[in-house]
Amino acid sequence: MLTVSIYRYNPEIDKEPYMKDYEVDTQGKDLMVLDVLEMLKARDSGLVYRRSCREGVCGSDGMNMNGKNGLACITPLSEALGKSKKLIIRPLPGLPVIRDLIVDMGMFYKQYEKIKPFLINDTPAPAIERLQSPEERAHLDGLYECILCACCSTACPSFWWNPDRFIGPSGLLQAYRFLIDSRDTATEERLSDLDDPFSVFRCHGIQNCVQVCPKGLNPTKAIGHIRNMLISQSV
């Protein structure tokens, strides 16, 4: 039997959030955390969380498991538990809770929108594709794979303090994805939008983002690249 403790809060019923304990029979299997939640949902239909692909590519089920952010669908119990006997599940930290494990991602998406996450190219499009060498394309690896699950940004203290002004690791990873794309022509404009004391420079290299990214991406490195681009543009 596994003890699972889950953060519960229904704004229509509860005055304040509380932790609710459940006992789950895993039959000795190393289930994914999402499987456990599905078992509990069948028992307690009031428990809510987001989920979709259940294979770690859609980014719906980001949550905090035993203190670490991750995707419930690709986090096996053994990994979430470590040496602990009890599974503790909380919503992603730093964002307002709507209900149970569901947070309001509005602030996170707003930061993403701010960096103009779309290709800008003023030259007329050719009849076929725009050419790009495999080397130029290789620059996008480790960037375009981001699934917007918010595990990184909500693990970042700088984002906790300034979610309205600091773009956060996820948004900055995407900012660099477009800055470095050989097909994008708006590099200068993009950089000047980022050159304030908050958007990029609130990153203090804490690297929580790198530690939690379920896709193994490295936002801190991308932020470093952006900073270098900003500096070389302005000195």
């Binding site: 050159d195 304030d196 004391p197 420079f201 500096i231 000195v235």
Partner: peptide
């Protein structure tokens, strides 16, 4: 872009460099 008058440098880069 976020601006702030109580800030020392002119922008993020100058703050960082300083």
């Amino acid at each position: 872009m976020v601006t702030q008058v109580t800030n020392f440098g002119r922008n993020g880069v100058s703050n960082w460099l300083i």
